[in-house]
Structure formats: structure tokens, C-alpha cells
Simulated scan of single mutants.
Amino acid sequence: MSGTASSTQRVRPIVRCSKPLLKQVRTWPAGAISALQDCFEQTTWITFKEAATDGGTVNLEEYTASVTGYISKCIDDVTVSKTITTRPNQKPWMTAEVRMLLRTRDSAFRTGDRAALRKTRAKLSRAIREAKCAHAQRIRGHFKDTGDTRRMWEGIQAITNYRKTSPSCDSDAILPDELNDFYAQFEAQNNTAAEKSIPPQNDQVLCLTAYST
């Protein structure tokens, strides 16, 4: 139709809208936990308290900083830190084996070796199925114990791909004192003794049962 301008909206893939992110992760090699336990067992913890004591008074800030710093050093000694690249379209079931097979398949495709390409495609399909099954088992494991609400929420967050953002904290040193003064005024005005509320007899408690297929 003349005189009418038609416009089409182009949808950009999410991998092009967001840049890859570099994330620092810590891996625990075999024997790292036992080595860390041995390190803690051989540590004389009383020395940290003695070093933070001055005139019979323990400086809690110095005491806490020295202990946490020592624990962090012990963890750094037994673990391996590496940088990984995460992309916005990365699947949650993706593993290192699948990535390696993807690179092998692409290499076989570029070289034109049909036999190697067919072989790597079969291995890649099998590895993807195993990775998806392992990921599904991990998700189901969050719902085995219905009494552990924390693991259930972790499973729900994994299913919905929920990412919790870390809240920003004010670095003002006066803020804790102001919060204490603010909440202390309610304690001073509250003269009512705490009482435990008894639910009605006909009140039904929510019970969760595992669903078996």
C-alpha cells in the first residue's frame, strides 16, 4: 500500500545483547578437605586470642580479623582458583566434557573429516543426554527431604533460574549505632509480655509428600 511505511522489529539474540562475564571460581581438588581439616587440627587457636589481648581485654575486631584471615589463607592453600567465562545463553546442564566435545565436533567439521564428525556427533549427543539426566537428578535431590525447606527453595531457584543480587551496604560507620537507637525505642515502649499463640483445633498443618512417578 502506497504512503504506508512498514517497519519490522528485529529481535536480537540474548547472546548478542549481553557480553560474556568473567567469573572467579574456586575448585576443591581431591584431598583438599582432609588437608584443610589437618591444617585446622594442628593450629593453636589460643595464640590468636592472646595476640588480640591487651591488658586483660580482648579486641574482638582484631581477634575476628586474624582468625578469618588465617582461615582464608588455609583455604587458598588447598584450593585452586581459576577464571571461567559465562555467557547469557549458557545452559545449566553444561559441563566441561560437553564443551570439550563441542570443540572436537567443530574441529572435525572444519577439517572435513566425515568419519570423525559422525563419531564426535554421537559422543556429543550421548554426553548431552547424560549431562541433562545428571542435572535433573540434582534438581530432584532438592525435593527428596520435604522437611529441608532451604534445599527446596534452592531447587525452585534452580528451576526458575533465579539469580539473587547482593544488596549494597552503606559503608558509614555510624549506621549500626543509628539502627540500634532506632530499634531500641520500640523495646522501651513495649511493656507487653510475649505469649505463645495456640492454633485452633481444626487448623490443618500443611504436609508435603514426595510424588512418585
Rank of each mutant, 00 (worst) to 15 (best):
E41C: 03
E62A: 14
N190F: 02
Q185R: 12
E187C: 09
A115I: 08
I46Q: 12
I71A: 06
P88K: 05
M152F: 14
C39M: 07
I198D: 06
L117Q: 11
E62T: 13
P92E: 01
N161P: 03
D77R: 10
A127R: 05
R12F: 08
K132L: 08
E41I: 06
F48A: 02
R140Q: 09
T8H: 09
T4E: 08
E50Q: 10
G141V: 13
L60E: 09
I33W: 02
S7F: 08
R16K: 13
P200W: 04
P200L: 03
A127G: 10
I33V: 14
S66Y: 00
G147I: 07
D170L: 04
M100C: 10
E41A: 05
K196R: 15
E41V: 04
P29F: 05
A134N: 09
P20V: 05
T213F: 02
E195S: 13
Q204V: 15
E97C: 09
R103M: 10
T192W: 07
G56V: 02
K19Q: 12
L179P: 02
G112A: 03
G141S: 13
P92W: 00
N202S: 15
S197D: 11
T27N: 04
D54K: 09
R140C: 13
F40I: 07
A193S: 11
T192C: 08
L175Y: 04
V67N: 05
R16V: 12
A65I: 12
K23C: 02
T160F: 07
R87N: 14
K196I: 15
W28Q: 01
R129E: 11
A51F: 09
R150V: 15
E50H: 08
R26E: 04
Y63C: 01
S197Q: 10
Y162W: 06
E61K: 14
T111G: 03
Q9S: 10
P88H: 01
T68Q: 07
Q90S: 10
M152D: 07
S34P: 02
N180Q: 10
L175G: 05
R10T: 11
I128V: 14
Q204E: 11
Q185V: 14
W153K: 06
N191V: 15
H142C: 14
Y162A: 02
L22A: 12
L36D: 01
V98E: 06
R110P: 03
L124R: 03
L117I: 01
Q42Y: 05
R163I: 03
F40A: 08
L124Y: 04
V205Q: 15
D181H: 07
M100R: 12
Q189S: 13
I139F: 00
G141R: 10
T79A: 00
A131K: 06
V78R: 00
L101K: 01
A193K: 07
